[in-house]
């Protein structure tokens, strides 16, 4: 390799200079409009806005914070909070344990919350069976779009097919396992009753 062929990384300067400003401005709409790093909205990182719109020193406290779960890294339940899905059932107990016992830096905090999510799903599926609006495990996946939006065509040649084939297993697997366990339980119960 002669010296002119030595790549930029091994010499002082880049071998290929970037295109000129004129060339870039002609090709790219708005090139250089934010050229000055000191004149960009996120510079400097810390800014002190004169008016954020807040007309309080500390916000009014939203009613209903008593008993609401919170991170133990907070001094109190924040003055404003979401009330979308309060804790309930076994999943609520698991989640409350995660919040009451472990800080955000502990893996146990997050693993308990993930466990609570899975229990919540099953609680809700079972609850839906006794309502007039049971879960529809197929239609709720939107899988019919595989037919209407070119499932096969869209995936042709894509490498992510390797893991997308697992998605049906992840979605249907627990239902199949649940149905199997249910059938087994019914069979055993029937045997017991026959004796």
């Amino acid at each position: 390799m002669t010296e002119p062929d030595v790549p930029s990384a091994y010499v002082r300067d880049k071998r290929t200079a970037p295109p000129s400003r004129e060339e870039l401005r002609a090709r790219i709409p708005g090139w250089g409009a934010d050229l000055d790093p000191a004149d960009r909205p996120s510079h400097p990182k810390l800014q002190y806005p004169a008016d954020t719109g807040a007309h309080w020193h500390f916000p009014d406290r939203q009613p209903g914070s008593a008993g609401r779960e919170r991170s133990i890294e907070h001094a109190f339940v924040t003055p404003v909070f979401g009330t979308a899905q309060p804790l309930h059932g076994l999943s609520g107990s698991i989640r409350r344990l995660a919040y009451d016992r472990f800080g955000e830096g502990r893996l146990a905090h997050w693993l308990l919350l993930i466990a609570g999510d899975r229990v919540d799903a099953w609680e809700s599926h079972l609850r839906s069976l006794v309502t007039g609006h049971p879960d529809q495990p197929v239609t709720e996946t939107g899988v019919r779009t595989e037919r209407t939006h070119g499932g096969l065509r869209s995936r042709t040649g894509r490498s992510d097919r390797r893991h997308q084939v697992l998605d049906p297993v992840l979605v249907a697997g627990p239902w199949v396992a649940g149905a199997g366990a249910g059938a087994l339980a019914v069979r055993r119960l029937a045997r017991l009753l026959r004796r």
Binding site: K45, L46, Q47, Y48, P49, T52, G53, A54, W56, H57, F58, P59, S65, R68, E69, R70, S71, E73, H74, V77, T78, P79, V80, F81, Y99, E104
Partner: peptide, 22 residues
């Protein structure tokens, strides 16, 4: 909230007054 330590420094995505869970 626009008024906590973080919002007062423009870090609106890091507000401390709106998320009790984390």
């Amino acid at each position: 909230c626009g008024s906590c330590w973080f919002c007062a420094r423009g870090l609106y995505s890091n507000c401390h007054n709106v998320n009790p869970n984390a």
